[in-house]
Simulated scan of single mutants.
Amino acid sequence: MINNHDNTHKMRLLLPESIWLEPEHFDSAKNASEQVIGELKQWKTYLNALASLGFTKWLKEHLPEQIIKQNNQIIDNFTHIQLGEFKFCLIVTEHLLDELVNIPEDNIIKPEATAHLYVVVEVLEEQAELVLRGILRYDQLVSYRDRMNLQPTTGGYQLPLGEFDPEPNHILFYCRFLDANAIPLPVLTTVNNEDNLIQFLPKTKTKLSQWLRGIFLDEWQSIAALINPDINLALNIRNNADSIKRGKIINLEMQLGNYPVVMLVNIKEEAEEKLRVLIQLHPSGETKFLQPNLKLTLLSKAGKSLCEVISRSQDSYIQLNPFHGEVGKQFTIEVSLDNISIKENFEL
């Protein structure tokens, strides 16, 4: 697993990847900019087109065996590119002020505008050059936003450049050796027209048996990294030294206005290749209590509700009844409030 944060400042001393622009790139970008109205929009379209053309050239040179697609209809023209199953969102800039990267809010919360990898591209027009300043995975982006409780400004979310991986060859690593589904993206579906229920469905399953071998996806972090240790959590699992505990930020957004909670999963290996599972929901950060009427539900593989608990006023946490299962068994945990529902898929 690639660690994007170790020795970040030392890694910044590496020479960034440069991409030279060709005369035909400038001609195509100019033609594209002339299709929009307004000087500011024309300049933005021009820069985005240059970044897209140059980055596409770089991908073709390094990954000639893979098919490149482009969707110019999403959010901002030319900033979304797809290589095989991987979706890229280009964050295009002329210069980075104070080493801050601005990512539009829509590119994080709207399923049709999200991407597996976010690439910061600096356009040096006079030098006819692009510079790849860094990449960031979607799951790491959302994890940082929730962990730091970032709030969007007028232009979007501002992240320090130091959170981005400065090694462009990792793009090639991801595209060659990683399944795109390992970086879950939100999928917006309307499940019931009457209730207009909105669900964000991850495409992958968390395989809990891998935790026994010390293998964790980046979004599953230690409990200490997610919850204030000064808050009395009243965890029944604390005295279980043989168990493995991990937590993940679950962000209920949209109408709720960025409401993160923490899902804690505790597993313990038992006889006959079975696992014992305990799942809890906690407030994040300094918050002491969950919002009332927050629902935590255990669903079977077929979607049948097996167990459910609802938070009351001043509940510091809620939990499902512990359950056991054999390795390979699949289930889903749903967190819902009002008309927002988020599902996490698991396999023992």
Rank of each mutant, 00 (worst) to 15 (best):
W43Y: 10
E273A: 15
L275S: 11
R213D: 15
L40E: 12
V121D: 03
L252Q: 08
E126N: 09
V123F: 05
M11L: 13
K44S: 11
K57W: 05
G162S: 12
T8N: 04
N102L: 08
F86S: 13
K205C: 10
F26P: 05
L208Q: 06
D315V: 08
F346H: 05
R176Q: 14
E17Y: 09
R238F: 06
N72Q: 03
L264M: 05
N181A: 12
P260F: 01
I237W: 13
G54M: 09
E326C: 00
L100M: 13
E163K: 04
V262I: 15
N3V: 10
E269Q: 13
V309D: 00
P322Q: 10
Q210V: 11
R176W: 06
P16T: 14
H282C: 01
L96K: 06
N77V: 03
L278E: 15
L150I: 07
Y138H: 08
E272M: 04
V265I: 12
L130S: 11
I198P: 01
P202N: 06
K44E: 15
M254P: 01
Q280W: 02
T45A: 14
L96V: 10
A302S: 15
F86H: 15
V262M: 04
F200D: 14
S18L: 08
N4M: 05
F216W: 04
N251E: 14
R145F: 00
P260W: 03
V36K: 09
E34V: 00
V187N: 08
L252H: 02
G257C: 07
L201P: 02
N193P: 06
I19Y: 01
L188N: 10
L348R: 07
D27Y: 04
L90I: 12
F200Q: 12
H25E: 12
L306Y: 02
P186T: 10
L136P: 02
I333M: 09
R147D: 03
L47W: 11
N345W: 08
P64A: 00
E125I: 11
W58T: 13
V309C: 02
V101A: 04
C89L: 09
N345Y: 09
N232R: 11
L320R: 11
E94A: 08
L178Y: 07
P168Y: 05
L117C: 13
L290Y: 12
T56A: 13
T153K: 03
I231G: 04
D76L: 03
L13G: 00
